[in-house]
Simulated assay, not measured.
Amino acid sequence: MSASTPLRTALIGVALAATALVPLQGTALAAPAHPASGGSAAAPAAASSVSGIEDATARALARSLADPAWRGEVRRAALAADTVGLGGLTGRAAAPAGRNLAAGIAEADRGVAAAKGLGSGAGPLLRVGLANASMRGRLAAGTAPLVAAAPSDDDGATTFTAYDSRGTAHRLALDTPTSRPVYLVGIDGAKAVAEGLKVIDGALAAKGLNAPAPATTASTLAAASGIDTTRVDSVRVADVQEPFFKGDAEIFTLVTGFGKDGKPRVDTVEMPYLNKADTTYYPGQVLVNWSNYKYDLADAVMMEDDGDTNYQALAKAIATVLLTITDQGAYIPLADAVLDAIPTSWWTDDPDYVESWYSLARSSSGKRNGAAGNGWMTVSPYHVSEL
Results as ranks from 00 to 15, higher is better:
residue 291 S to C: 07
residue 148 A to R: 00
residue 65 L to F: 03
residue 186 G to C: 00
residue 246 K to A: 10
residue 45 A to M: 13
residue 111 G to S: 09
residue 82 D to A: 13
residue 186 G to Y: 02
residue 185 V to N: 07
residue 100 N to F: 00
residue 162 A to N: 04
residue 266 V to M: 02
residue 32 P to V: 08
residue 120 S to Q: 08
residue 227 I to Y: 02
residue 228 D to N: 12
residue 220 T to C: 01
residue 250 E to M: 00
residue 308 D to L: 04
residue 67 D to S: 13
residue 81 A to E: 14
residue 33 A to D: 08
residue 387 L to W: 15
residue 276 K to R: 15
residue 213 A to V: 05
residue 77 A to W: 00
residue 364 S to M: 04
residue 355 E to K: 01
residue 72 G to M: 03
residue 88 G to K: 06
residue 34 H to M: 05
residue 248 D to V: 00
residue 300 A to I: 10
residue 365 S to L: 12
residue 99 R to M: 02
residue 97 A to M: 02
residue 23 P to Q: 12
residue 355 E to Q: 12
residue 189 G to M: 05
residue 345 S to V: 11
residue 86 L to S: 01
residue 335 A to Y: 10
residue 385 S to F: 15
residue 355 E to V: 07
residue 45 A to D: 07
residue 245 F to N: 03
residue 17 A to F: 13
residue 199 V to P: 00
residue 63 R to T: 11
residue 233 D to A: 04
residue 75 R to M: 14
residue 325 I to G: 01
residue 342 I to E: 04
residue 270 E to D: 13
residue 96 P to K: 06
residue 350 D to C: 05
residue 280 T to H: 10
residue 254 L to W: 11
residue 384 V to A: 11
residue 315 A to C: 11
residue 220 T to M: 07
residue 323 L to W: 03
residue 200 I to P: 07
residue 171 R to L: 14
residue 168 T to F: 15
residue 313 A to M: 06
residue 339 L to P: 04
residue 318 I to Q: 03
residue 223 A to Y: 10
residue 381 P to L: 15
residue 199 V to N: 07
residue 299 D to N: 13
residue 51 S to N: 15
residue 36 A to S: 10
residue 258 F to C: 04
residue 101 L to D: 04
residue 186 G to N: 00
residue 33 A to K: 07
residue 267 D to M: 01
residue 338 V to P: 11
residue 284 G to F: 10
residue 81 A to C: 13
residue 326 T to C: 00
residue 237 V to Y: 09
residue 320 T to W: 03
residue 90 T to K: 02
residue 140 A to Q: 14
residue 44 P to L: 12
residue 355 E to H: 00
residue 258 F to R: 07
residue 87 G to R: 09
residue 265 R to T: 02
residue 99 R to K: 06
residue 102 A to D: 10
residue 183 Y to S: 01
residue 265 R to D: 04
residue 117 G to T: 09
residue 212 P to Q: 01
residue 39 G to H: 09
residue 383 H to Q: 06
residue 85 G to E: 04
residue 202 G to V: 03
residue 98 G to P: 06
residue 194 A to T: 15
residue 74 V to F: 08
residue 328 Q to E: 10
residue 114 A to P: 05
residue 76 R to F: 11
residue 30 A to V: 12
residue 167 G to R: 05
residue 357 W to R: 08
residue 124 P to E: 06
residue 139 L to E: 00
residue 297 L to V: 06
residue 361 A to P: 09
residue 145 P to N: 11
residue 361 A to G: 13
residue 324 T to H: 04
residue 291 S to D: 15
residue 279 T to I: 11
residue 13 G to P: 04
residue 133 A to H: 07
residue 268 T to P: 01
residue 206 A to L: 02
residue 47 A to I: 01
residue 137 G to F: 12
residue 184 L to V: 09
residue 272 P to E: 03
residue 376 W to V: 01
residue 25 Q to G: 14
residue 254 L to P: 07
residue 352 D to W: 05
residue 357 W to E: 08
residue 288 V to K: 05
residue 72 G to K: 02
residue 197 L to K: 04
residue 270 E to L: 09
residue 214 P to H: 05
residue 82 D to S: 10
residue 5 T to P: 00
residue 338 V to W: 04
